[in-house]
Amino acid sequence: MGIISSGFHGKRQTGNPALPPGQYETASFPVLTAGPAPYVATADWEFFIRTEAGERHAWSWDAFMALPQVDIRTDIHCVTSWSKLGTSWRGVSLDTLFEDVETTSDYTTAHSYGGYTTNVPLQDLRDGQAWVAWEFDGEPLERAHGGPARLLVPHLYFWKSAKWINGIELTQDDLPGFWESNGYHIHGDPWREERYS
């Protein structure tokens, strides 16, 4: 049971079942990154998947755009307590990207341009739960938000949705990525409030 602050009334907007515990709704789209945003031109961009056997699958921007594109409407939840409900994105499902990939790994590390990494269990990336997204609200994804493309894993806290995504490496073990090595939770499920390690 919490400590009651009798003079505190708050501006309640809870009771919204779409909000995980401890989250509040925001209309804006705050930016959270560890440092400045890298520049990546689509001409230089590629997306890869590397298996534990060293097999590498890679797509140039054009090859990636030629894959089936889907529209995604989803809520996103940031560990700093804001949630944005009903956001719309367009991108490629990871199910599509993993179609020809053979692996026995259970875990992955997402690698971004600029050196950012985050770990996500493979089962959190499959079955319609994750995308590589390049459009937000009908516009190309801004660089500040991860453009040209970012990972989108909206059922986990948003730091797992790596901006400026470059590729996914399959790993046998669950290896902590950047924020996971800096005090944040290894998994990051907002409904269980897996915020900090």
Binding site: S28, T33, G35, P36, T80, G114, E142
Partner: peptide
């Protein structure tokens, strides 16, 4: 500020940022 520094030759890896919130990044 972070953009200005990167444009002026400070390596991105040497810059750490903490954002308190408010407007920006949306437009």
């Amino acid at each position: 500020v972070a953009e200005w520094l990167v444009e002026s030759g400070y390596p991105a890896a040497s810059i750490k940022t903490e954002r308190f919130g408010g407007t920006g990044g949306t437009r």
